[in-house]
């Protein structure tokens, strides 16, 4: 078995694939190229930082969803569905009524990249999608089952560190996503009030079976604030850990149970 690590710059962040495989280096490199191509393809369509992307044109009113690649319609529908599931707290429709699916596209594209590797038979790998973590079912290194959760400060800060560690081994969770202000400031807005989120939370982490579910709920919970803890506690298969601005920590009972298991 060969250990591999590949860091790919895309969507303004890094995607880090790490794992073990029996594949030859040449084959593995081609496979990772194909996986990363999925990320770049999504970026080229959905980036609002690229003036010529279909989404940028859509935002400027120069095209319609029907004229965009079909995947735009698909993602639009996904965003609408998630908006309903989260009680309106995840929304890809900005206060200015533009369609901005950035909150979903990163992990949605990451999932597509993961599928490339899974369909080629890889079973023992992890993906760090800019801070959102996904684990495959067949991880053989116990370290890789464990995920450190950053303190609510930037990883480049002198105070950077880990607030806790969760071990997803022997659980149904395969993804952990985190939303907060540590890296990019206040970039999440509340779809209900149509204004930037200002609440007592500085960071929320959500575990779920898949990356998109974890990511969407983390974003929705951060937008909603402390009341999201009770909301998410009722959602099967999804658990939350919330950090408050004053240092308090709270979460769902399921996340408490995960921490209890992680501590032994």
């Amino acid at each position: 078995m060969t250990e591999f690590r590949r860091a790919e710059e895309c969507m303004g962040t890094f995607f880090v694939f790490h794992g073990r495989t029996a594949l030859a280096t040449v084959e593995l490199d081609e496979l990772l190229d194909a996986a990363c191509a999925k990320l770049h393809e999504a970026d080229s369509i959905f980036s609002l930082y690229k003036p010529e992307s279909p989404l940028s044109k859509l935002s400027r009113g120069e095209t319609s969803v029907a004229q965009c690649p079909p995947v735009v319609d698909h993602v639009w529908n996904l965003c609408e569905d998630w908006e309903k599931v989260t009680g309106g707290y995840f929304s890809a429709f900005t206060p200015q009524n533009t369609f901005d699916p950035s909150g979903l596209v990163k992990t949605w594209a990451a999932q597509a990249a993961i599928e490339v590797l899974l369909s080629a038979g890889l079973t023992d790998f992890t993906l760090n999608a800019g801070g959102d973590i996904w684990l495959s079912d067949g991880i053989t290194d116990d370290r890789d089952w464990k995920i450190g959760i950053s303190k609510p400060v930037s990883i480049a800060s002198t105070e950077a560190g880990v607030i806790t560690v969760v071990n997803l081994k022997d659980t149904d969770y395969r993804a952990l996503a985190t939303s907060g202000i540590a890296e990019r400031g206040s970039h999440i807005w509340n779809p209900q009030t149509k204004s930037p989120v200002e609440n007592e939370l500085v960071q929320v982490s959500v575990v779920a079976k898949d990356l998109v579910t974890a990511d969407v709920w983390a974003t929705a919970a951060f937008a909603e604030g402390p009341r999201a803890i009770d909301r998410i506690a009722k959602v099967p298969g999804v658990e939350i850990l919330a950090i408050f601005a004053d240092g308090r920590i709270d979460g769902s009972e399921g996340f408490a149970e995960l921490l209890r298991k992680s501590a032994v």
Binding site: E9, D144, N167, G180, E183
Partner: peptide
């Protein structure tokens, strides 16, 4: 919760494969 997050980090330290957190930028 404070007890549990401390217990989990105390027993694992830096023994983990990935670091999760809010989406970092390429510069960071």
């Amino acid at each position: 919760f404070p007890t549990l997050v401390q217990a989990a980090i105390s027993s694992n330290g830096s023994n983990f494969g990935n670091l999760g957190g809010a989406t970092f930028t390429t510069d960071t």
